[in-house]
Design a protein around this nucleic acid. Structure first.
Length: 938
RNA sequence: GCUUGGGUGGUGGAACUGGUAGACACGCAGGACUUAAAAUCCUGUGAGCCGUAACGCUCGUGUGGGUUCGAUUCCCAUCCCAAGUACCA
């Protein structure tokens, strides 16, 4: 047993103890309630972990350990989201197989994670790039391919139920989510179809489907990207230009779940900001679709979507997106050249121009008129790039009096601005989007209010087949193909129909997993096909059919991984029924907020799908989500004096007197903003030995600034360095002590000594630091000691229950300080306190646990001490006595004293009488166990 | 522009349903121990004022109002910072 706090040996020893004894292995235990604590698993990058990464893991580990102490069977696993771009790019450069890079990086991650003393059940580790894992990702894909969304039952169903319906009733009245251009057919038509025709028709209903869609194509990376991977027209990773391109791609019909994804947000305990981001992403708009006739055109009608159908009498123009497919056919002869020029101009503008350009009004008249269905007014048809082809119908009705963009457009092109509500004001200066007042100039809705008008119009339009109420979503179906190598192969092959058309078929389930083939290079083929095309000579299904060459996107493997943790070794199922029945879903999920509209949305989608299939229990996969705030870098600077003969640096506080240039300096040679001058000289070639340093108070003080943590700013702090200097326990305590978990904060190593001192102080309650003698005694605890202990027990429990990790540390510090004051070395007190400390400093806790004479390793499953209010000594309360809200003194009163007793007691007090100086108070307010306020005057 | 957070000492932060603002920690200053240093321990530390001192007074949670016996907390307005998002009809 150690009597000195040699943290490195202690930590190493217990880490291997835990590993050897599988201390944190969890299993289905029906005698205990379960608790599933999940971290967002990392992508194992080559750079390893920096000090910001473990923040969330520390928090989740503390909760895991706390829940074990509370008697829960805790599932706390870790794994790796190991398919991804960096490994592939490295492969392109070096030829090394991404699997090798990935393997190496994972090994490094595991070592770093184990070094932190996390209580992961490593036997459940998953890696999305392992065939044994992605077999089930592919399996879920197959389920999606074999399912359609029945809006009648509001869930996904097997394709079999669809064929049954088609055979009996056709699709005329079918309420299903499907391709928009898919024709409605009768049962007779369906039954007259050939097998190939039937198969092809059904492709339009599958939840995983092939489609020619406009996608975000990134030429630099040679792949398509999902909407959430594109930011302002550039790829999120790499920052390459992204363009719109029509391509045949796999997609996921996530829009089928739009409404459930929206309503489900109400039942999860996630931050408002994440929920709001998802709501905006889904972008539900309730409105109406209205059909406009086109003058002199019979075979086409223009549909618009509007959220303000009530403003339809104010329409003075109509606008089509320049990319709209009818642009050519709807342009008159006279306008042909003007329109062509405008379309060309909009196309020529790169995404960059579109984004950076100040909003300016542009557009062109097509020469064509449409007819407003409510009043048969002739309305000119324009093109303008403020209308987006990808949203709604790609056409908009222009109501200048009620919409600012329409107003701008109308003013620019000198189109009429028709007032429609008597409450609209100043519409000659700007649009007024009010819904107040009564309608004017508005035919059948004149004199009605907003609500009445909307309903009246929609039913009027519906009766005449001119429109209908409609709900529009901003969210698009999710493109699921990536033209990359390092991802899950799509378990699909292509077989020609009798007419020679290639249709996609699933491979046989028994052929799963469909493993990644070996290829010579990780680049697209010479003909521009995805890298997997390089394997096409020998890589064929049943030696004859071409496989799908694109792979799945990064989010595929991460959209269901929490289920695999439940039963990670299972070869026959994605997870056994028994394990899903027991663990059900995630109780606490901790991770960054950057996944708000990516991973977190897709995961909810897949989870709902799996629930529809009856494979899982919960509609939402994570009840509680905490987003840990990003840890920013804190850079240090030195100030070089310009134009000095010798190389000279001036300390921060004196820099104003000189012409200086600020230079980043490695934060690892700076402590409390004091520069280690010798280390600085050594670390830089451009600083000669005789360089001069102008000091203040004998020290060189550095300046500082908050920036992103990055190598180029010399502000990266490696957890391994801190662990070797202070120990993992100190680092864990310190990261939690830094502030609220969810807050963004700069990393600052300055005050880590405080956390280290706290642990050492705690250690000294057990051992004398100088003599190494044990201090523990068996005496019974005093009332004071019990009061101190139980104050801490209550606060630690309360704070952990509301995930207030930083205040727990303060509480523990106060408790240790107080027990130190009381010179308490009593085993019974320290044993309870040790359990409170153990989630934060598990290694030290194990070591001291043994010192108490307990069994090694048992503290992880000890019982969290029970709070006993009797020890809190609440017979009396110190009342602050305030005068008009200003506290002047405190007085002790018995806890059982009534308000009246307290009031008379206060007024009889000498000091109070003195302060009152003869003035009688107008009122005395006594708040039991809080405060007394004496009101003067008024 | 919109959405969601946030603004408290020299610094990180605390104050849970309105009830002693600044817990805890860093830093700083002073002291004890020591030949010395480290370590440890003790004291002080929001700003200003009065005074020899004890004591006491005033101001103070971005800013300006309001509600209240009482506001960091609730309401209105306004400024600033961060994140997300946008010609979404």
């Amino acid at each position: 047993m150690r009597t000195e706090y040699q943290f490195r040996e202690i930590e190493k020893q217990w880490q291997s103890f835990w590993e050897k004894n599988e201390t944190f292995k969890s299993q289905i235990n029906k005698n205990k309630p379960k608790y599933f604590v999940l971290d967002m698993f990392p992508y194992p990058s080559g750079a390893g972990l920096h000090v910001g990464h473990p923040l969330g893991y520390i928090a989740s580990d503390i909760i895991s350990r706390y829940k074990r102490l509370m008697g829960f069977e805790v599932l706390h696993p870790m794994g790796f989201d190991s398919f991804g771009l960096p490994a592939e790019q490295y492969a392109i450069q070096t030829g090394q197989h991404p699997a090798v890079t990935t393997e190496n990086n994972i090994a490094k991650y595991i070592e770093q994670l184990k070094n932190m003393g996390f209580s992961f059940d490593w036997s459940r580790e998953v890696r999305t790039s392992d065939a044994s894992y992605y077999k089930w990702t592919q399996w879920i894909f197959m389920k999606l391919f074999n399912s359609w969304y029945n809006q009648e039952t509001d869930k996904a169903e097997s394709i079999d139920t669809l064929t049954e319906i088609l055979t009996k009733k056709g699709s005329v009245n079918l309420r299903a989510v499907c391709d928009e251009e898919l024709p409605r057919i009768s049962a007779d038509e369906w039954n007259s179809y050939s097998e190939d025709e039937k198969y092809k028709y059904i492709l339009g209903y599958r939840l995983a489907y092939l489609d020619d869609s406009v996608v975000n194509w990134c030429p630099a990376m040679g792949t398509v990207l999902a909407n959430d991977e594109v930011k302002d027209g550039f790829s999120e990773r790499g920052g390459y230009l992204v363009e719109q391109k029509k391509m045949r791609q796999w997609s996921m019909r996530i829009t089928a779940y739009a409404d459930r994804l929206l309503t489900g947000l109400d039942e999860v305990d996630w931050s408002d900001s994440i929920k709001e981001q998802q709501r905006n992403w889904i972008g539900k708009s309730i409105g109406a679709e209205v059909t406009f006739d086109i003058e002199n055109v019979i075979d086409k009608k223009i549909k618009v979507f509007t959220t303000r159908v009530d403003t339809i009498y104010g329409v003075s123009f109509m606008v089509l997106a320049p990319e709209h497919e009818w642009v050519d056919s709807l342009t008159t002869q006279e306008q042909k050249s003007a329109v062509a020029e405008y379309v060309k101009w909009t196309q020529s503008r790169s995404e960059l121009d579109r984004v950076s350009e100040v909003k300016q009004i542009s557009g062109v008249f097509t020469g064509t008129y449409v007819t407003n269905p409510v009043n048969d007014e002739r309305v000119p048809l324009y093109l303008a790039d403020y209308v987006l082809a990808g949203y709604g119908t790609g056409a908009v009705m222009g109501v200048p009096s009620g919409d600012q963009r329409d107003w701008n457009f109308a003013t620019h092109f000198d189109l009429p601005i028709i007032p429609i509500l008597d409450a609209q004001k100043g519409i000659e200066k700007q649009a007024d989007a009010t819904k107040e007042g009564l309608y004017i100039n508005s035919g059948i809705i004149n004199g009605l209010s907003y609500k009445e008008a909307t309903n009246t119009l929609i039913s009027w339009l519906e009766q005449r087949g001119l429109g209908k109420g409609k709900i529009q979503y901003r969210m698009r179906n999710a493109v699921f193909s990536r033209q990359r190598y390092w991802g899950e192969p799509v378990p699909v092959y292509f077989k020609p129909t009798s007419s020679g058309e290639l249709l996609p078929y699933l491979i046989d389930e028994s052929d799963l997993p469909l493993e990644l083939p070996k290829i010579d290079k990780y680049l697209p083929t010479e003909t521009g096909e995805p890298p997997l095309g390089r394997a096409s000579m020998e890589w064929k299904y049943k030696n004859q059919y071409e496989y799908e060459w694109s792979t799945m996107p990064g989010w595929a493997g991460s959209s269901w991984y929490w289920y695999r943790y439940m039963d990670s070794q299972n070869k026959d199922e994605f997870a056994s029924k028994e394990s899903v029945d027991y663990w059900k879903a995630v109780d606490l999920y901790i991770g960054g907020s950057e996944h708000a509209t990516g991973h977190l949305l897709y995961s909810r989608f897949w989870n709902k799908f799996l629930k529809d299939l009856g494979l899982v229990h919960e509609e939402e996969f994570a009840k509680k989500l905490i987003n840990q705030g990003m840890i920013q870098g804190r850079s240090n600077f030195v100030y070089r004096v310009k134009d000095s003969e010798k190389v000279t640096f001036v300390s921060y506080g004196l820099k104003e007197k000189y012409q200086i240039a600020a230079l980043h300096v490695d934060v690892n040679i700076v402590e409390n903003d004091i520069l280690d001058v010798d280390a600085f000289k050594k670390s830089r070639n451009d600083v000669p030995d005789d360089a001069e340093f102008i000091l203040e108070g004998g020290k060189y003080m550095c300046g500082w600034e908050v920036e992103k943590m990055s190598k180029s700013k010399y502000n990266v702090v490696n957890p391994d360095d801190l662990i070797s200097k202070y120990g993992a326990d100190t680092l864990r305590v310190y990261e939690m002590f830094l502030g609220p978990l969810e807050q963004f904060k700069p990393w600052n190593t300055n005050s880590i000594s405080g956390s280290h001192n706290f642990l050492r102080k705690f250690w000294r309650l057990f051992f004398d630091e100088n003599t190494q003698a044990g201090k523990l005694v068996d005496e019974t605890a005093s009332a004071d000691e019990l009061r101190v202990l139980h104050t801490a027990i209550r606060k630690v429990k309360d704070d952990l229950d509301r995930f207030s990790f930083n205040t727990v540390v303060s509480t523990l510090m106060i408790c240790v300080n107080d027990l130190g004051q009381l010179k308490c070395h009593k085993k019974s007190v320290l044993r309870d306190l040790l359990i409170l400390v153990s989630p934060y400093a598990p290694h030290m806790a194990e070591e001291l646990w043994v010192a108490l004479g307990e069994l090694p390793g048992q503290i992880s499953y000890a019982k969290f001490p029970e709070f006993n209010p009797a020890f809190l000594n609440e017979e009396s309360f110190k009342y602050p006595i305030s005068f008009n809200g200003k506290v002047k003194l405190t007085l002790d009163f018995s806890s059982s004293a009534s308000s009246n007793e307290i009031e008379s007691g206060v007024l009889a007090n000498e000091q109070v009488i003195k302060i009152l100086a003869g003035v009688s108070p107008s009122k005395v307010i006594v708040v039991p166990k809080r405060i007394v306020n004496i009101v003067l005057g008024k």
